[in-house]
């Protein structure tokens, strides 16, 4: 499934954040969005995931228009995201954070929560799946620790596990490598490649250009709210003007 948008515009208090952006992220690939601070990268992600309303424009997941849908409906369409800052429930365990991210749980309903009909079996299944995801991201040893006691890098890995628990077709990741140690960053890149192998579409905003070169299939460069270049990394990232302005 791909994600695309057309004619997106957004300004904040008179400052133009996005000025008529139209992009398409290829299905089943890894797309990197790069650009200087304040270029509009996160604003684009916020709009696509329903966290922000644009002044104009439309956006789609596959053939379905998701313009104006609230975040929870966007998530149900198979599109999940992470944020630049880590957003976890710090007082509950690592395992519980992942279990809570699983969609359509029977126990979400008041009656089922009280009567617990069919809930126990489903929770056991959720727990198995959550444990599998924690193993996938390498946090199995932290399963029963409170999320708030994890290091920043571990919290980034946990947000990725929570994202995957929602069974998305498209993942939007806002600076997944920021603030993480080289080893953890390499681990996250390996996980993203595995996610791509599973047929998912990954879109990530990133300042780490070496990482973009390593795993991206497609690069979109945004500056001052407009797309200034897009294409395969070997083509886009080797342009002298791009190298000078955004990479050097």
């Amino acid at each position: 499934m791909n994600i695309r948008c057309t004619g997106l515009r957004k300004s904040f208090d008179g400052v133009i954040a996005l000025g008529n952006i139209s992009v398409q992220c290829p299905t089943g690939g890894i797309t990197a969005i790069i650009g200087p601070n304040g270029a509009g990268k996160t604003t684009l992600l916020n709009i696509l995931t329903g966290f922000l309303s644009p002044d104009a424009g439309r956006w789609f997941v596959g053939e379905r228009e998701i313009t104006g849908l609230p975040p929870y409906k966007v998530a149900r369409m198979g599109l999940t995201r992470t944020f630049q800052d880590v957003r976890l429930i710090s007082m509950v365990t690592v395992l519980e954070n992942v279990m809570l991210a699983r969609p359509d749980q029977t126990g979400e309903g008041l009656l089922h929560a009280i009567l617990r009909i069919g809930v126990a079996g489903e929770e056991a299944c959720n727990q198995r799946e959550a444990s599998r995801l924690l193993q996938f991201v390498g946090l199995e040893k932290q399963t029963n620790e409170r999320a708030g006691t994890l290091s920043y890098g571990q919290q980034k890995l946990l947000t990725l596990a929570c994202c995957l628990a929602a069974q998305p077709e498209i993942l939007l990741l806002d600076e997944p490598l920021a603030g993480v140690h080289t080893d953890t960053a390499a681990n996250i890149l390996r996980l993203l490649q595995q996610i791509r192998q599973n047929g998912k579409t990954v879109v990530f905003v990133e300042h780490n250009i070496a990482a973009v070169r390593e795993i991206a299939d497609f690069v979109i460069v945004i500056d001052e709210g407009t797309v200034v270049a897009q294409g395969p990394p070997r083509e886009v990232l080797n342009r002298p003007e791009i190298l000078e302005a955004y990479v050097a």
């Binding site: 208090d13 400052v15 954040a17 601070n37 304040g38 604003t43 630049q84």
Partner: peptide, 15 residues
Amino acid sequence: RGRTKQRAGTLSGGE
């Protein structure tokens, strides 16, 4: 400098 009246929540992460 040009953003003193802007809400901080609408700044980019870098800003």
